[in-house]
Computed example of a mutant assay.
Amino acid sequence: MTDNETNPKYGGEGSDDSGPRTADKSAQGVVAAFGQTMKTLRLRAGLDREELGKRLGYSAATIASFEQGRRIPPPRAIDRADEVLDAGGLLKVWKEEVERAQYPPFFQGMAQLEKQAMELLSYDTHVVKGLLQTEEYMRALLDMRRPPLDPETIEQRVTARLARQDIFDRRPTPLLGFIMDESVLRHRYGGTSVLRGQLEHLLLVGQRRNVELQIMPTDCEDNAGVNGPFTVVMRRDGKMFLYVEAQSTSKLETDPEQAGLASARYGIIRAQALNPRKSLEFIEELLGEL
């Protein structure tokens, strides 16, 4: 991981770019090699794509996409394929590399940090944080991308984002703080039913003991977050990182001074926003308006 990692082309949390499904040649090579291994094992087992698809819960076309490196399989599909093809763990050893290949190069570092986080603090002003999004909300955001994303890219983005949400159940339990502008929760992306499901999900997540969920109301006269959204991650070794994303550009900042300043700024925003209890009450009120 290098200082000031940037990439002007690919988007992460809310700005998934319509670029290649695997962002660089090394990632493409990993996915292609996995697909070839899967195909070799399938042929050894005497199964056609349709039969393997039935056993894994996918269509023959999706199995072809896996084997040809055009689509990245989710971890559960890799585990199940290893069992069905009696691979003896040969497919499972690819899981970590294949998972990393789901993300554009700049976001691979952030995805890894999420796995190592002791504390994660996020302030958002445009869309609900990816870690908090429902699948329906994710799909609504991805469907709105222009130029449009192809279906396989959307499936990959959804799979990757859902996989990151295991952070809530990880042990040891990380401390997670999320502050969102009120406007984020009023945008009816995907329609009223999608927003309702998203708000209900936030209420559930906000009740977790390791989560602090807060709302910054639009009538608040002071907001230290006027410069935009950001995320601060503290690793278990105590080192802090700052992640910023906007308009298809992203930065993973490793300078401790910058990360420390962002953490301090988050503390001020936290004090200005509604406290967690009032924030959940606020979300309940928004639900009542739908």
Rank of each mutant, 00 (worst) to 15 (best):
L199Y: 03
L252T: 00
S193T: 14
G69L: 04
D48Q: 01
K129L: 12
T22V: 09
W94Y: 12
L199M: 04
K251P: 00
K92C: 05
D48H: 03
T173K: 13
I179R: 10
S18I: 02
S263I: 08
S65M: 07
R145V: 13
T153G: 07
G19M: 07
E135Y: 07
G260T: 03
I78K: 00
D17Y: 03
A264E: 14
T173V: 13
L41Y: 06
R277Q: 08
P229I: 00
A160M: 05
Q112C: 10
M234L: 09
E97S: 15
G197Y: 06
E182G: 00
V232W: 00
L185I: 11
P151W: 11
G228D: 11
R188E: 12
E119Y: 13
E284Q: 12
E155A: 08
N227E: 15
R161F: 00
A117K: 06
E13T: 10
P256I: 05
G238E: 05
L252F: 04
R49S: 01
L274C: 01
Y243A: 03
V30P: 00
A140W: 06
I269A: 06
L52M: 04
T254W: 00
P8L: 08
R70M: 04
K278T: 03
G14Q: 07
D124G: 12
L90R: 15
D16Q: 15
V232D: 00
G57C: 02
M180Y: 15
D219W: 12
Q133C: 00
L141H: 09
I63E: 14
E13M: 12
Y243F: 09
E50F: 05
D3G: 04
R71S: 13
A32Q: 11
R157P: 12
S18L: 03
M110A: 14
T134G: 07
F106I: 08
E83K: 14
P75Q: 05
D237E: 00
H126M: 14
M240H: 14
A64L: 11
G19D: 07
T134M: 01
A163R: 09
K95Y: 01
T192F: 08
E119W: 14
I167L: 11
L52R: 07
H187D: 13
G57Y: 01
A224I: 04
Q36K: 15
G191M: 06
Q272W: 13
R145Y: 04
A111T: 10
T218K: 12
V98K: 03
P20W: 10
T125S: 08
